[in-house]
Design a protein around this nucleic acid. Structure first.
Lengths: 163, 163
DNA sequence: AAGGCGTTATTGAACCTTCAACTTTAGGCC
DNA sequence: GGCCTAAAGTTGAAGGTTCAATAACGCCTT
């Protein structure tokens, strides 16, 4: 036999080029979106994501664990981020009615206003530096690929943050 | 008129699904690749990237600014990361012959060995959780998209880190 | 050759994320 | 009911990144 199971299957040149483009492009893109939100709305990208999820939830409120799961951040991370946001008046935490261990985070009026102001900035950035560059077919491919990535990684590690 | 230039062009449903898949998928993927490198080789993903770039450079050495540019990290960030790596014996810094301001980072023997050991782990992860899930066409699309993203962001901000 | 300006790299503090330990409550079992 | 284990959140410290300020050098002008 000429190969065996322990030999590494390296990436070919095209794959490597794509992989590196993705790495560098993602670094630059996240940097830029984060910077724009900070400069114009005093908000980080993770904070913005939290505002969005809350705004889409009934009553503008969510359990901490559900919130964490929806953006795939660790619970600890969300605790810290929400604590900062609460200090800034964007969000308020309260006990959960049905579960004594639970905590619900809810949008404040100000949090909602900040989100409304920030959303156009964010969407313009996402369009200008990603969506409008891509072509519908290619962008759909990006969606397919990262849906598959998500599925695979969730399956590979169901309790993603109890570690 | 029915629209004007200041109105936000929101993402349609398909675009939004793709965008979120990308965000979440990237979060999970980077987390996982970083974790695997840490657990098995005591190396972060950014550290690994630095080892790779150095190993591909003539003499296994690079100017700090070039190194930073090649992975699109800020100079400050690379200074800190390389400082840690130097303390771990993976890399050594020295003055640059042709430019008195310059500093060159070079791979040590140990750094090279660690890279050789870590590379298969990393590539398997990239394959298992991304490349092998994607299909050649779709993965090529990812490459095209993020090459475009990179070009656009470099053009939009040439001196990416002097800020 | 001196002055001034831009570039290279570093520094330390502030900020954010991760990690491991801990508190509190839920839920099952005897 | 009391005990045990599991789950939800939080905490504080350690680790990593960003930001603004700084030092040191190259280059151009005069």
């Amino acid at each position: 036999m000429t190969t065996n199971a322990t030999e590494t299957r390296w990436l070919d040149q095209a794959q490597q080029r794509s992989w590196r483009a993705y790495l560098v492009g993602t670094t630059l893109l996240m940097d830029r979106l984060d910077r724009d939100l900070r400069e114009q709305h005093d908000l980080s990208l993770p904070e913005y994501e939290i505002l969005v999820r809350l705004s889409e939830s009934p009553g503008h409120r969510m359990r901490m664990a559900v919130l964490a799961g929806s953006i795939s951040h660790s619970r600890s991370r969300v605790t810290h981020t929400v604590a900062r946001m609460e200090k800034d008046g964007l969000v308020i935490r309260g006990a959960c009615a049905s579960d004594g261990r639970g905590v619900e985070a809810a949008l404040t009026q100000e949090g909602f206003s900040v989100l409304q102001a920030a959303a156009p900035t964010h969407v313009e950035g996402v369009r200008r530096f990603l969506v409008d560059l891509a072509g519908d077919e290619d962008f759909a491919a990006v969606g397919r690929v990262f849906n598959a990535v998500t599925d695979k990684l969730v399956e590979a590690n169901p309790d993603a943050d109890i570690r």
